[in-house]
């Protein structure tokens, strides 16, 4: 425990005994929080942008780069709001994306590889972890969700593509197959068949491309940063709303089940 920690306990007016109980409580909440952040982030991302994350042959320039950050920043913002507003802890986004990444790799091994025989190269995930760290760091530096939303969320969208390109660029080398060109990623998707997933249901770039200097990805990344700003604010508010410690009154019949106490709720109502 350093001097600052001591000052915090002093300011909180906690006795050593209370501080010890409180630290036990901290550990328990870290565990509950980890499971909660992990699962809520996962179920949110899984069913809003899962397909792009599952398969290497869904990681396109148009939608993957746009949708993945837009979706992952939702829970990053929601949990950031909860931890920041209540405890001034700037860890919500990082925790959300780190636990999600850990979970993703577990599932890629146990399920895609372990049950359905798919090679891991088909199911390389993307990650917004670097974006999330930047988002938390900017929250610390600015102490403001408004500024974090403007600058941090834009950066969140912009960082996604380059921080993933370092990991997956090799999958986009050109290959010749049956007389036409394909990327290595296309080939992996083609070679390892998914009976329930025909090629045409890929929601990927298929249309026209009219952009300056062929920099299609950066157009998507920039747009992604723009959408992330709104996604961030919306979910910051949802996270804030979720922190409302409201109790509503119960009826007398319910009260009588516990000894008929007619007192108002002890905690929370005034907060």
């Amino acid at each position: 425990m350093n001097k600052n920690d001591a000052l915090i306990l002093q300011s909180a007016e906690l006795s050593p005994q209370a501080a010890q109980w409180s630290r036990t409580f901290d550990y328990l909440i870290i565990v509950v929080g980890a499971f909660l952040v992990w699962s809520v982030t996962y179920i949110s991302q899984l069913l809003l942008a899962g397909d792009w994350d599952f398969f290497i042959d869904w990681k396109d320039r148009q939608y993957w780069v746009l949708i993945t950050p837009t979706v992952t920043i939702m829970m990053a913002a929601g949990f950031q709001a909860i931890f920041w507003k209540l405890f001034r802890l700037p860890i919500g986004a990082t925790a959300s994306l780190l636990l999600f990444l850990v979970g993703v790799w577990i599932v890629r091994y146990h399920s895609w590889y372990g049950m359905a025989y798919f090679p891991l190269s088909l199911v390389i995930p993307g990650t917004c972890l670097m974006s999330a760290i930047a988002l938390d760091a900017i929250l610390v530096l600015s102490r403001s969700w408004l500024i974090t939303g403007m600058i941090g969320a834009t950066l969140y969208g912009l960082l996604f593509y380059p921080s993933n390109w370092v990991a997956i660029a090799g999958y986009f080398q050109p290959v010749e197959h049956m007389g036409s060109m394909a990327s290595v990623a296309d080939m992996i998707g083609y070679i390892y068949p998914r009976s329930g997933t025909p090629e045409y249901i890929r929601i990927i770039e298929r249309g026209t491309l009219r952009t300056f200097a062929d920099h299609a990805i950066w157009v998507s990344a920039f747009f992604s940063g723009f959408v992330c700003v709104f996604s961030y604010y919306i979910f910051w508010f949802i996270g804030s709303f979720a922190c409302n410690p409201k109790f509503v009154a119960v009826g007398t019949r319910f009260k009588s089940a516990f000894g008929g106490s007619g007192k108002p709720a002890a905690a929370g109502e005034s907060a």
């Binding site: 915090i8 300011s11 909180a12 007016e13 906690l14 209540l86 405890f87 990082t94 850990v102």
Partner: peptide
């Protein structure tokens, strides 16, 4: 990336957390 993130989390989680920080807030 994970190591960097973990270091950031540990930087915060090692401190008195929930109740003290709420009271101080």
């Amino acid at each position: 990336y994970g190591v960097l993130a973990l270091l950031w989390l540990l930087w915060w989680l090692r401190r008195p957390l929930i109740i003290p920080r709420w009271l101080v807030t």
